[in-house]
Simulated scan of single mutants.
Amino acid sequence: MKREDLKKLGLSDEQIEGVMSTHGKDITSLQEKVNGLTSERDGLKSQLDERDEQLDSLQKSSKDIDDLNEQIKQLQSDNKKANEEWQNKLATQTKNFKIETALREADEEEFETLVEVMSAKVKEDRPVSSREALRRLWGK
């Protein structure tokens, strides 16, 4: 709104001043509302940006957790295999130790009997359990 337009309408200087003052107050009030809404919009935009960042972070964390769970499963599997191998080695060592102990403690006759039993195992082409070998060794 311009003063010249109001003069053309036939308003006096006092009336023009009153209209301009009222119009200025209205403009100021509307400008404050616009500024408030702009501030609110900027605040909401900032909150949305923060939420987007949080969502991105959660998605990355989710992928990291999936990767970690996969690694845990792999490590558990590896540990299980290693434990089985260790148990097998321990069983073999225990068996060998018992055989070595029996051989050390055996006299010459028992040793010859043990060799015969082992030879029979090879000839018969069937497995002879350690119990059976000891039964034959001690004649029971």
Score class of each variant (00 low, 15 high):
residue 82 A to G: 00
residue 32 E to W: 03
residue 89 K to F: 14
residue 2 K to V: 05
residue 68 L to K: 11
residue 86 W to L: 15
residue 85 E to I: 04
residue 36 G to F: 12
residue 43 G to A: 14
residue 122 V to M: 12
residue 114 L to S: 13
residue 121 K to Q: 13
residue 133 A to H: 01
residue 98 K to M: 13
residue 24 G to K: 02
residue 110 E to F: 11
residue 6 L to K: 00
residue 75 L to V: 07
residue 105 E to D: 09
residue 29 S to Q: 15
residue 136 R to Q: 15
residue 33 K to D: 12
residue 1 M to H: 01
residue 34 V to A: 12
residue 32 E to I: 03
residue 99 I to D: 06
residue 125 D to P: 00
residue 20 M to I: 07
residue 60 K to S: 13
residue 43 G to V: 09
residue 6 L to M: 04
residue 16 I to Y: 01
residue 8 K to M: 08
residue 57 S to E: 15
residue 83 N to T: 12
residue 12 S to T: 08
residue 44 L to A: 03
residue 25 K to A: 01
residue 51 R to L: 15
residue 111 F to W: 02
residue 83 N to S: 14
residue 26 D to G: 13
residue 67 D to W: 05
residue 36 G to A: 11
residue 17 E to I: 04
residue 120 A to W: 02
residue 80 K to H: 07
residue 41 R to T: 14
residue 23 H to M: 09
residue 97 F to R: 11
residue 3 R to G: 00
residue 64 D to T: 08
residue 130 S to I: 12
residue 136 R to L: 15
residue 84 E to H: 06
residue 20 M to P: 05
residue 76 Q to W: 01
residue 22 T to N: 10
residue 12 S to W: 01
residue 28 T to L: 13
residue 129 S to D: 02
residue 30 L to M: 11
residue 41 R to P: 07
residue 136 R to H: 10
residue 86 W to I: 11
residue 99 I to N: 08
residue 77 S to I: 01
residue 128 V to C: 03
residue 73 K to I: 01
residue 30 L to I: 14
residue 81 K to A: 06
residue 122 V to N: 09
residue 68 L to F: 05
residue 63 K to E: 04
residue 77 S to A: 03
residue 20 M to E: 10
residue 87 Q to Y: 10
residue 73 K to M: 03
residue 113 T to Q: 08
residue 80 K to D: 09
residue 107 D to M: 00
residue 71 Q to S: 08
residue 125 D to A: 10
residue 109 E to I: 04
residue 115 V to L: 15
residue 10 G to Y: 03
residue 106 A to E: 00
residue 54 Q to P: 05
residue 74 Q to Y: 04
residue 59 Q to L: 13
residue 140 K to W: 12
residue 68 L to A: 15
residue 113 T to H: 03
residue 140 K to H: 10
residue 62 S to R: 09
residue 115 V to Q: 13
residue 74 Q to V: 14
residue 35 N to W: 09
residue 55 L to V: 10
residue 108 E to D: 13
residue 128 V to Y: 02
residue 98 K to R: 08
residue 5 D to C: 02
residue 135 R to Y: 12
residue 14 E to S: 13
residue 2 K to Q: 11
residue 84 E to M: 07
residue 82 A to C: 02
residue 124 E to W: 08
residue 138 W to M: 12
residue 48 L to F: 07
residue 117 V to Y: 04
residue 46 S to P: 02
residue 62 S to L: 13
residue 138 W to Q: 11
residue 11 L to C: 08
residue 126 R to D: 05
residue 72 I to Q: 02
residue 77 S to T: 03
residue 108 E to W: 05
residue 36 G to N: 14
residue 47 Q to S: 09
residue 53 E to W: 05
residue 74 Q to A: 14
residue 131 R to E: 10
residue 112 E to S: 08
residue 31 Q to A: 10
residue 100 E to L: 13
residue 87 Q to P: 02
residue 91 A to M: 03
residue 38 T to H: 12
residue 49 D to V: 01
residue 21 S to K: 15
residue 124 E to L: 06
residue 134 L to W: 15
residue 140 K to S: 11
residue 134 L to K: 12
residue 80 K to R: 08
residue 56 D to S: 12
residue 51 R to Q: 14
residue 28 T to M: 08
residue 96 N to M: 06
residue 76 Q to M: 04
residue 3 R to S: 02
residue 76 Q to F: 03
residue 33 K to E: 15
residue 34 V to N: 09
residue 75 L to I: 06
residue 60 K to C: 07
residue 112 E to Y: 01
